[in-house]
């Protein structure tokens, strides 16, 4: 494996080291911080299950970012899509009259459709109005957040709580409450969605070289003009990647509502949509790499949230600092390794 392929992992290690060194400014030992953020997931079965729950959400958000990136789209709209999907899942779960498998199917299908359609808006703006996907995604993130807040507080507020959250979904829909993973990990937030997320990554890894359309999407990302000359429909490519991205964003909402809290809680996401960027960059958009990078980022996220208890000056907010520094180092790592390569090549040609 060439060094260039390992660039993001070197970046990751550099970002981690930098974050721990930053702890010095807050009168904390870097080694102590490193120990907490990297090992706290092993404290108990519950902690490990919680880390795997984060892994599940990061896998889905990594997929939601990396699939559009294959077509050259920067998709930072997952946050809005997962929010609106979670609300839809929670609302359907609390109002549907049919409390059986058909009801669960309806929740899954409508939630997935909500995520997909909300992501499709970005593709339509991109194709028909030539609007930048990042701009549209930022606007939609706020619009979906406002709609979700309005729906939650004004129409579906949990009558038994003062917090802004929807009512619990019907007991019959809480099927993941007793799934084997949850039982094994002492009722931690993990659910069978973890298996689904890993299986999707493995399936996509297997499928990618076999389906020509994946190559068409990649070629569109690499060279739009050439792709158009071959006659591939631009809107079809944009719609495909965004529908897939929306589908995976919706699964974060489903993981939370169907597998963890059984309701929608305002602000439940610790910016999963944005952290998907770090996960996808770290994995270089490789589908199997996404599993590993999601697990790593989840370990750090879980570890950083324990800093409140384990250190005097650092709080769980350190998680964001850690993720920001990792994003920076990973994003910059490509420069060092590609520059080295160019230098070596030029030496050889001399």
């Amino acid at each position: 494996m060439s060094l260039q392929r390992l660039a993001p992992w070197f970046g990751f290690l550099f970002g981690l080291a930098l974050s721990c060194l930053l702890a010095l400014f807050f009168n904390e030992s870097p080694l102590h911080v490193l120990k907490i953020v990297t090992t706290s997931f092993l404290n108990s079965k519950f902690d490990f299950g919680l880390t795997l729950f984060y892994t599940t959400c990061f896998i889905f958000s990594g997929l939601a970012f990396s699939i559009p990136l294959r077509a050259g789209l920067f998709h930072i709209g997952a946050e809005g899509q997962l929010t609106i999907s979670a609300v839809v899942a929670a609302v359907l779960g609390s109002i549907l009259p049919t409390h059986n498998w058909f009801g669960i199917l309806i929740i899954f299908v409508i939630t997935a459709l909500t995520g997909m359609l909300s992501a499709l808006i970005i593709a339509l703006f991109k194709y028909y109005r030539k609007a930048h996907e990042v701009v549209v995604a930022i606007m939609l993130n706020f619009i979906f957040a406002a709609i979700s807040t309005w729906l939650t507080i004004n129409h579906f507020q949990n009558p038994n709580s003062q917090n802004p959250e929807t009512a619990m979904i019907a007991d019959q829909f809480q099927i993941f409450k007793s799934d084997p993973l949850k039982i094994y990990f002492d009722q931690s937030p993990i659910s069978l969605f973890f298996i689904v997320a890993v299986a999707i990554c493995i399936f996509l890894y297997w499928l990618e070289p076999k389906i020509l359309y994946f190559q068409v999407i990649k070629s569109y990302g690499a060279n739009r003009q050439a792709n158009q000359r071959f006659g591939f429909s631009e809107i079809k490519i944009l719609a495909t990647v965004m529908l897939l991205a929306g589908f995976f964003s919706a699964f974060i909402g489903l993981t939370e509502v169907m597998g963890n809290t059984y309701q929608y809680k305002l602000g439940f996401s610790p910016a999963y949509g944005f952290l998907g960027i770090a996960v996808a960059l770290l994995a270089r958009q490789h589908f199997l790499g996404l599993i590993a990078s999601s697990f790593l980022v989840a370990i750090l996220h879980k570890g950083a949230s324990d800093l409140d208890l384990e250190t005097q000056f650092l709080t769980r907010d350190f998680s964001q600092v850690l993720q920001a520094l990792i994003i920076f180092s990973v994003a910059a790592s490509y420069f060092f390794f590609s520059r080295k390569k160019i230098k070596v090549e030029s030496e050889v040609t001399k």
Binding site: F318, S319, L325
Partner: peptide, 13 residues
């Protein structure tokens, strides 16, 4: 995006 995360995390610390 990273810069926004950095500000959000660093200020409380």
């Amino acid at each position: 995006t990273g810069l926004n995360l950095l500000a959000i995390g660093l200020i409380p610390l």
